[in-house]
Amino acid sequence: MTQSETRLEGILLDEGLTVTFSELTQLCGSNTRMVSLMVTEGLLRPQGALPEEWRFDGLEVRRARRAVRLRRDLKLNIAGTALAIDLLDEIEHLRERLRVLEHQLGQRQARPIR
């Protein structure tokens, strides 16, 4: 085993990041046909009308990468992929709500005088 050490500045995939059609294609290791298909299916919602004007934010990058992997690994068709991605997003959102609510529900009882 060898070791190496580096100090790194990453790129945060958030709402502030925008990538083009070809950048997105590269980031998800896919092809333009697949990315267009995901846009047509409504799985990705870029800004801009024409493919050369399309801009995707960081959250779309994550969705696209996830979609490409799920489609490939589980042999899903595009509609099934879109459904899985929407459901996964919803589950994530619900889990977050659940965490907040569970936190809020924590102990409600009388306390000793201090």
Binding site: M1, Q3, E5, R7, L8, G10
Partner: peptide
């Protein structure tokens, strides 16, 4: 396998 150490911001 190789162990890699990264310092990430």
């Amino acid at each position: 396998m190789r162990t890699k150490t990264l310092n990430v911001r």
